[in-house]
Amino acid sequence: MRPLSLQLVSVVTVLVGVLTLAAGLIWLERRLLAFWQERLGPNRVGPAGLLQPVADAIKLLAKEDWVPPFADRPVFVIAPAIVFVTVLMSFAVVPITPGIGVVDLDVGLLFFLAMTGLGAYSAVLAGWASGSKYALLGGLRAAAQLLSYEVFMGLSLMGVVVMAGSFNLRDIVDAQRDLWFIVPQFAGFVVFMVAGLAETHRLPFDMPEAEAELVAGFHAEYSGMKFGMFFVGEYAGIILISSLITVLFLGGWHGPWLPGWLWFFLKTMLFICFFILLRASLARPRNDQLMAYGWKVMLPVALLNLMVTAAVVLAVGD
């Protein structure tokens, strides 16, 4: 057990780091999308538009905190907080360097899976509580999508667990000192990335929002800071998934020459940018196509991966 002061420093560092990064991502995503789409993106507020997230935050905070009269008020208010809280809680178990990290849980991976499972309620409850048909359809889609992708998200990680022999994320990182798990666990890596995308409902998995058809889906009725929570929650979710990919498959802080935290940051940013690139380049499948893809392709691949890994570990380990 580390001293309390160090513990607090870790907590504050992670919290501030994640929130700053999430806000910065709003800028990064808009600039990157613009770059890939032959336009400029936000470039007026501050140097290169860097203060755009601040302006956005002020705008959202200054808006009237309004709840539609037809909404189910308590649930409507709680829903955006759920996604925000669960994503931030998940960061507690993410080891950034040997020294930085909030808690060192032996069930770290399970804790993360539990938190994402809880986070799925956010979209479902928001869609239900809004009392609007578009939001309801968005919520329905969110329920179907998140629940089915949850199943093999967990399964895809079991290969890693088998190889590392632990649910503790620090142990998993340490187990990759010689070989990153992306090599032996490539199938698991792909499945987890797809599931992670679905979990954060980013394009091509943004069916719950689906602007062209459902207007804004589950958060159609939200405005002001409650909308802002979904917004920042989504970006924090991207950071979470990217940092978990780093931890689980890319050896976390391991890397030559550079300090560990920088390696962690670079690896995470790589995936964040990749997620943004996906958004710029792909179309949106229909929700039934997505379900079929999940159950018919992803789930068997995840199961197969687990079986093969377990068999190999059994054969080699003895």
Binding site: L33, Q37, E38, L203, P204, D206, A212, A283, R284
Partner: peptide
């Protein structure tokens, strides 16, 4: 049309 099926980028190229 591309945007209607969820692809965000093509519309910018075509408007250019």
């Amino acid at each position: 049309f591309a945007q209607d099926v969820g692809a965000l980028s093509p519309v910018f190229y075509m408007f250019t």
